[in-house]
């Protein structure tokens, strides 16, 4: 549904007198399949928005090619525009308009007739649970309501692909959960959804596949589970009395094991399967048990392995 090869963009930025070149995106290859929620995970300044703006025809790439919903970005941006929806990071509603007015105008800009536009507006207002506020000015909305209007604006013309730039940033946990449901609903309706986020849990829970971006480059791509599996399996940490450690090491000799003062760590493929076996082996060897903890790698561990930094810190 989206295929990019070698997308690049740099900006000339001025710092005082000095002119500097910021390489915002340095050669991005992406393959997004039809009907999936694809996530772009990366810290601030990674180049997520710049990539999205290129794909949405707002800025021209310096180099590279892209096909979106079958239309070529370079040779036919007009057709790309007809097939996509785009929701900017900073929102796009006007304080003094109402949600319904904005939606009707947006539908009409995409070519809908007046009656069709009104019907579409009513439908998405219903779908996004906005009917109640539809005729109030946008400046009176809460952050979550306003964000829902933004997204409704992006999909009113039923595009094949919709780009959502940080759809949940600034929302409280409950509104975020709601937004995730909305996004899953879009997928259920057959849309391909491309979101950016810097939330690990969002990428993990919501996205079918993700690409991790850092410093203008994609450092890893895959399903969240696959990426985590790739870097390391699960870690089981078993707490033991000091004098029981040698016995434990012997009993668990078939595992990859590291010993510490008061515990051992085992690298296993799947912790849920391994824990009962470990416990049984220790029990059989008569090793007195302390505590057992399972640590599953997070996407942050993936980011850490690929970039040497933690996403939480950057």
């Amino acid at each position: 549904m989206i295929e990019t090869r070698g997308l690049r963009k740099s900006f000339a930025s001025r710092q005082g007198r000095e002119k500097k070149k910021v390489e915002a995106v340095r050669g991005v290859d992406l393959d997004v399949a039809e009907g999936e929620i694809f996530g772009f995970l990366g810290p601030n300044g990674a180049g997520k928005t710049t990539t999205l703006r290129m794909l949405a025809t707002l800025i021209e790439p310096d180099d590279g090619t892209a096909t979106i919903a079958g239309a070529d970005l370079r040779s036919d941006p007009g057709e790309v525009r007809r097939r996509i929806g785009y929701v900017a990071q900073g929102g796009s509603t006007w304080d003094d308009s109402t949600a319904r007015e904005e939606l009707v105008l947006q539908a009409r800009l995409y070519g809908a007739s007046k009656s069709d536009a009104l019907a579409r507006a009513a439908r998405v207002l219903e779908g996004f649970q906005l009917s109640e506020y539809a005729d109030r000015k946008c400046k009176t909305y809460s952050g979550g309501q306003r964000r829902r209007v933004d997204i409704a604006l992006g999909i009113i013309h039923e595009p094949k692909v919709v780009f959502l730039d940080e759809p949940t940033t600034g929302l409280d946990p409950q509104s975020r959960a709601h937004m995730w449901d909305e996004i899953r609903r879009l997928r259920a309706e057959g849309m391909t959804v491309f979101i950016t986020t810097h939330y690990l849990d969002e990428a993990d829970a919501l996205c079918d596949r993700i690409s991790i971006m850092d410093n203008g480059e994609i450092v890893a791509s895959g399903t969240p589970a696959g990426l985590k599996r790739e870097i390391s399996g699960d870690v089981v940490r078993v707490g033991l009395p000091v004098d029981a450690i040698p016995a434990a090491v012997q009993a668990l000799s078939s595992y990859k094991i590291e010993t510490y003062d008061d515990h051992v760590r085992l690298n296993v493929e799947d912790g849920a399967v391994a824990i009962p076996q470990i416990l049984r082996a220790l029990d059989a060897a008569g090793v007195p048990l302390g505590t057992v903890e399972l640590h599953r790698p997070s996407l942050d561990d993936v980011f850490l392995t690929k970039t040497g930094r933690s996403l939480r810190e950057s």
Partner: peptide
Amino acid sequence: AGVIERSRVTP
């Protein structure tokens, strides 16, 4: 407010 950008992604 992002209104111009929103218009510019439409045809």
